[in-house]
Design a protein around this nucleic acid. Structure first.
Length: 263
DNA sequence: ATGGCTCGTTCGACGAGA
């Protein structure tokens, strides 16, 4: 059994104690973090090592973004894509060695896309779509069993948001984003493990705004995902959304996903 | 129905998140 977790932590240095709590509670073999918000040399490497996560692949930058994959089973970095072509640290890929050997694990933080869902008025929105289109061309050529996880910043299904109609013009749930993400999914036949294990319209939010009023009304969105190659997906035995972390003290606005694979 | 919190920057607003 190999257990993989993913969590947009929104500053790993600020929340290392919460990460430790999750690692003890869920005992994943591998944890993929997004928005670590630090450079490689600032990453709390020693704290992870003390918990047994001695294998660490970090793609950080100063202040913003940044991803890291930590593991208690051996792994090897195999890619570091810049799908936005602007130098931001939003991806790292590893190959698992030993248990789960041969699986490729892609850890990605897709850009949020700014406020306005219009390429002309808001360049960040275009960058988000372009980022996913580059991922699509990459996925088209994949020939190994792969799991891609992370913060996709898109809630694809109607039931992935608290109010589908109200969010049709809100970045994260617009039809153009959903269609762009659909093309990425078709390019490789990715299986959405979240909805494989928690069928629509089951509750499956992974993000709630920090704004207290929205949080109180449970206005969540499913922005975080785990997608598996067609040959890998049938090995997934369990999938959980660890919603309780959102009620921990000074939490991340995202909650972790955990999937167990019989490998 | 609601951009009303929270982060890192680095010491006080500001850009960014989504």
């Amino acid at each position: 059994m190999v257990t993989i977790a993913s969590w947009n932590i929104n500053s790993v240095r600020l929340r290392m104690s919460q990460v430790a709590r999750l690692l003890v509670q869920e005992a994943p073999d591998v944890l993929c973090l997004q928005e670590i918000k630090c450079q490689e040399h600032q990453f709390p490497a020693e704290a992870f090592a003390e918990l047994g996560y001695v294998h660490q692949v970090i793609h950080g930058q100063k202040g913003y973004h940044g991803v890291a994959t930590v593991s208690r089973i051996p792994l090897r970095e195999c890619s570091r894509h810049d799908w936005q072509d602007n130098g931001e640290a939003r991806h790292v890929g590893v190959e698992l060695l030993g248990p789960g050997g041969g699986m490729v694990l892609e850890n990605v933080y897709i850009p949020a896309g700014g406020d306005t869902p219009d390429r002309e008025a808001n360049p960040k929105f275009g960058q988000k779509l372009d980022f996913i289109e580059r991922m699509t061309r990459w996925a088209d050529a994949l020939d190994r069993p792969t799991l891609i996880v992370g913060d996709f910043n898109i809630a694809p299904l109607d039931c992935d948001v608290y109010d589908h109609k109200a969010l049709l013009k809100v970045v994260s749930h617009t039809p153009v984003e959903v269609e762009t993400l659909d093309r990425f999914r078709y390019a490789h036949g990715w299986v959405d493990l979240g909805r494989e294990h928690i069928p629509a319209p089951g509750r499956c939010y992974s993000w709630w705004s920090y704004r207290a009023y929205w949080r109180k009304k449970d206005q969540g969105r499913r922005l975080d995902h785990m997608w598996a190659s067609p040959e890998l997906a049938p090995h997934a035995r369990a999938h959980r959304v660890i919603e309780e972390t959102r009620d921990w003290e000074q939490p991340s606005d995202h909650v972790p996903l955990v999937t167990e694979f019989a490998l």
